[in-house]
């Protein structure tokens, strides 16, 4: 079972629609991280609206995937965590899902676009007044 990864401009979008085995979740992680690297995506949205059960293993892998994509250079949001899933994960203990999340995919895409725009602003600091506050010249 492979989860499709869609490309929307500089954002990658992936939605887990079926309950996955542990092996499928690991395959998903591998696919997503490689695709982020290959496309040099600026943003990644992981939609889990359809997941009714997220146990500690699945939570960890989703979290790790988000962190890996972030390490590569992408902004990441996890979208659509169900209320019962949120209750269960918090009750089980410790921060099992710590990635930034949004209510739904639509909000996730808005957040990603905002962050990508902010980043572009930071990069275009040449004549920016912000550059005066920078301690170093690159």
């Amino acid at each position: 079972m492979r989860i499709p990864i869609l490309r929307l401009g500089n954002i990658l979008l992936t939605s887990i629609q079926v309950d996955l085995t542990d092996e499928d979740v690991m395959l998903f992680q591998n696919d997503v991280v490689n695709e982020v690297s290959r496309t040099e995506a600026m943003g990644l949205a992981i939609d889990i609206t359809a997941l009714e059960i997220v146990d500690s293993f699945m939570a960890r892998v989703i979290n790790d995937t988000a962190n890996m994509a972030r390490l590569l250079g992408a902004e990441v949001v996890v979208c659509g965590i169900q209320p019962t899933v949120a209750m269960t994960l918090v009750e089980m203990g410790r921060g099992l899902l710590g990635a930034q999340s949004t209510f739904n995919l639509e909000q996730g895409l808005i957040v990603l676009r905002q962050r990508i725009v902010q980043r572009a602003d930071l990069w275009a600091f040449d004549d920016d007044e912000r550059s005066r506050d920078r301690p170093f010249n690159f």
């Binding site: 009714e52 146990d55 169900q82 269960t88």
Partner: peptide
């Protein structure tokens, strides 16, 4: 339902 299913999963 989710609590029970998650516990069984673990």
């Amino acid at each position: 339902q989710t609590r029970l299913a998650t516990a069984i999963s673990e």
